[in-house]
Design a protein around this nucleic acid. Structure first.
Lengths: 207, 207
DNA sequence: CAAAAGTAAGTAAACGTTTGTTTACTTTTA
DNA sequence: TAAAAGTAAACAAACGTTTACTTACTTTTG
């Protein structure tokens, strides 16, 4: 039995992401992808049932999977709040700024009904997605350091600014100078931390 | 000379937005749009040069134009910081939650290279887009109430959470109960305000 | 002050391409 | 030689856009 050529599988994934990030999701076609990867269209259909299957698997397994791993590196839920937040923000910044195709697909995940649906299903089904962050926040809610809000609301308050900053980082690649760097990211992170933490509680702990 | 049928022009715009928000940008075709609007494909090409022209004009004139107006209602740059922020947040929340198609297209604007380019050009060219907010922030930077950061960074810190909350609002439409309401939006707005404002300065002003 | 002339709006049908996917066949290796 | 991997070529359907024509209204003219 002829064995699979793993290089071709990898080429399909990486070239698909490249096309999406450079030309947009609406400009990715199976034939264009096959041509760019120097294979026959049929070869894509050995690994993936159809285009939807390819996109969903690419999004969930390839992008979200590695994204999660990268963000949680050197992070653990028992960390202090400020320390943990800074770790998560820096991990997000460094991973995404070096993986533009992933960032592009994540952005598409927020608007495209197809990927949006896939994301929600994954998020609800396994419930384990970003579970350490969930636990981290719960801990600090319990001590009263941060307010008890729904998890989705915590996410909007604590992590949407860093994702927006990454978008700005990519926008500024086309401009004369880059304004988004690690120092600025940390400054912004501190502002977000200051907003959500209960100062009185913090001072009581010090006493 | 036969006059234009303005109803048909309006139908093209509103039905295009409807298709985009329900089925995604990648599922909008000129023939599908014509059929849904009960007109001939040729009629679209009387008003718009091609598909790209349609999308860009729809995005900039129809969506961004009315979005800007809605957000700046009852707002003026001389307002106090907290008061102004709350006005902007509530306007954003109320407008977007009642205009899902606009929200969808704005989200696409962040990922699709085509719309992204159109947005940047518009933003740079006229420089007047959201100018009152620009002035508002500048004023409060001058008094030292908020830190002096690039405008794009201010936007990420101050407005990305409310946009994320609107996305959550729409996600929760499919779930048993809605958790995003005006009260929660104001709570979050206060958290963001607390984060960015210089407390010491604030207290000095009081003395 | 009607009817003819002129003109842009609008239509039905089709253009050549490209789409996602499949069929029929060849290659490669256990 | 069995069997899956892979290819070249083709499929119907849908794509963006155009052609050839009709409709509906304004303006000009006898």
């Amino acid at each position: 039995m002829r064995p699979k050529n793993l290089e071709k599988e990898e080429a399909i994934r990486s070239i698909a992401l490249k096309i999406i990030s450079e030309e947009g999701l609406e400009n990715l076609s199976m034939q264009k992808l096959a041509k760019a990867a120097n294979i026959s269209p049929r070869t894509i259909y050995i690994k993936y049932e159809n285009k939807e299957d390819l996109l969903v698997k690419l999004f969930i397994e390839e992008v979200l999977g590695t994204y999660e791993k990268a963000i949680l590196e050197n992070f653990n839920p028992e960390m202090g709040f400020a320390e943990g937040m800074k770790r998560l923000w820096l991990n997000t910044f460094h991973y995404l700024k070096n993986n533009k195709p992933s960032f592009s697909l994540i952005q598409y995940g927020k608007s495209s009904p197809l990927l949006n649906k896939a994301f929600q299903e994954k998020n609800i089904q396994q419930g384990e997605f970003f579970a350490p962050i969930h636990r981290f926040l719960k801990t600090h809610v319990k001590t009263g350091l941060i307010p008890d809000l729904p998890h989705d609301v915590h996410r909007a308050l604590l992590f949407s600014p860093i994702q927006d900053l990454v978008a700005e980082y990519f926008d500024h690649l086309d401009r004369p100078q880059q304004i988004i760097n690690e120092e600025l990211v940390l400054t912004c992170c501190e502002i977000v931390i200051k907003g959500i933490t209960n100062q009185k509680h913090h001072e009581q702990l010090k006493k």
